[in-house]
C-alpha cells in the first residue's frame, strides 16, 4: 500500500491493511476488558449476570440501528434521521393498531414497512438528487419528527396486549428477547459485510465512489438498499422500544442518532468511509453501555458520566490514529 502523509488529512483514505483493522478492534476489546475489571472492583453489584443481561436489554435499540449505521458510514454517508424514523414508527404502531383497529402483528409489519420506506426516501434523495447525506438526512430528521408529532397529536397509545411486551421485557432461555434479535441482526450484518459482493461494494463505494461506479458496481442501488435497511432497523428498534416502555410517544428516539454514531465511530469505522467492521461497532456499543452503567453504580452522577464517555471517545480515536500512523510507516 502507498504511504499516507499525515500532512494531507483531507485526502480520501484508502483501504488499510487487515493488521491495522485488527489493531483497533483489539485495542477496543482491551479497553473494554479493562473497564469491566476496574468497574467490577469498584462495585460488587456491577459484574453480575442479572445486571449485564439487563444492560443488554437497554442497549438493544441503539445496537440495532448502529449495525445498519456501520454500513451507512462505510459508504462515506451518514443517517441523522434514524431517531425521527424511530419516533414515527413508534407512533404509527399505535395509530395503526388503536385508531385503524388493525391486528397488532399487521400494525407492526406496516410500521416496519413505513420505516423502510422512510429510509428508502433518504436513499432516493441522496442518490437521485445528489444531495449530501448529511443535509438530506438532516432535512428528513425534521420532516419525520414533524410527521410523528402531527400524526400522534401529542396523544400516546397504551394498553397493548400482554404478548407484545414479551419482545421488550420478556426472556428466552434466560436471555432478554431483544438481545436475541440484536445477536441475529449482528450476525447478518457481519456476514453481509465480510463475505458478500454487497459488502465489498459497500467498502468500494466508501473508498472511491466514482471508481466503484466506473468499475460497473451498482453504486446507487447499493446505497438505496443501505439507507432502506437503516430505516428498517430504526423501525425494528421502535417496536422493541415501544414494547419495553409499554407506550408510544412522538418524542421517542430523540437524539438516539448521536448515541448510534458514537458507537459506530468508537468502533473504528472511519467517518470518511471505506473502513469499518460490525464487530467494532458492537465493541464500541458495549464499551459505552458498560461505562454508563458501571459509573452510575459506582456513584458517578449522570453529568460526570457523559464527560468520561466523551474523554474515552477522544482517547480511543487518538490512540487508534497513532497506531495507524505507525502501521502506515
Amino acid at each position: 500500500m502507498s504511504p499516507r502523509s499525515p500532512a494531507l488529512p483531507a485526502m480520501p483514505p484508502r483501504a488499510v491493511s487487515l493488521r491495522s483493522l485488527l489493531r483497533h478492534e483489539t485495542l477496543l476489546a482491551l479497553i473494554l476488558l479493562a473497564a469491566l475489571a476496574l468497574l467490577a472492583l469498584a462495585n460488587d453489584r456491577f459484574l453480575t449476570t442479572a445486571n449485564l443481561l439487563n444492560q443488554g436489554r437497554l442497549m438493544t435499540e441503539v445496537g440495532l440501528i448502529a449495525i445498519a449505521m456501520t454500513f451507512v458510514v462505510i459508504t462515506g454517508g451518514i443517517d441523522l434521521s434514524v431517531g425521527s424514523i424511530l419516533g414515527l414508527c413508534a407512533v404509527l404502531v399505535g395509530v395503526f393498531w388503536k385508531n385503524l383497529e388493525l391486528p397488532l402483528p399487521v400494525a407492526m409489519t406496516l410500521s416496519l414497512g413505513v420505516g423502510t420506506l422512510a429510509g428508502l426516501v433518504n436513499g432516493l434523495i441522496i442518490t437521485r438528487f445528489r444531495v449530501p447525506p448529511l443535509i438530506a438526512t438532516l432535512a428528513t430528521l425534521a420532516l419525520y419528527r414533524g410527521l410523528a408529532e402531527g400524526i400522534s397529536q401529542a396523544k400516546s397509545v397504551r394498553g397493548y396486549p400482554a404478548w407484545f411486551f414479551e419482545l421488550g421485557q420478556g426472556s428466552i432461555v434466560g436471555i432478554p428477547t431483544q438481545l436475541w434479535l440484536l445477536l441475529a441482526a449482528a450476525l447478518v450484518g457481519i456476514v453481509v459485510l465480510r463475505s458478500t459482493t454487497f459488502g465489498r461494494a459497500t467498502y468500494a463505494i466508501g473508498n472511491n465512489e466514482q471508481g466503484a461506479a466506473f468499475s460497473g458496481l451498482p453504486v446507487a442501488r447499493t446505497k438505496l438498499l443501505i439507507y432502506a435497511a437503516s430505516g428498517f432497523m430504526a423501525g425494528l428498534a421502535a417496536l422493541v422500544f415501544v414494547s419495553r416502555v409499554t407506550t408510544t410517544r412522538s418524542d421517542m428516539g430523540t437524539g438516539i442518532e448521536l448515541d448510534v454514531i458514537t458507537a459506530v465511530v468508537l468502533g473504528g469505522t472511519s467517518i470518511f468511509g471505506g473502513r469499518g467492521f460490525v464487530t467494532g461497532t458492537l465493541l464500541g456499543l458495549c464499551l459505552i453501555q458498560v461505562l454508563k452503567n458501571g459509573l452510575a453504580l459506582s456513584g458517578v452522577r449522570g453529568d460526570g458520566t457523559v464527560v468520561i464517555i466523551g474523554a474515552v471517545l477522544i482517547v480511543a480515536v487518538l490512540i487508534s490514529n497513532v497506531l495507524k500512523r505507525w502501521n502506515g510507516e
Binding site: 416502555v245 421517542m252 452510575a296 453504580l297 449522570g302
Partner: peptide, 19 residues
Amino acid sequence: PTKANIDEQVTFIDNYITS
C-alpha cells in the same frame, strides 16, 4: 438525564435499582 427524555430516565432508575 440532562434532557427530559423517557428512555434516559428509565435507564437512570434501572441503574439505581441495581445499586
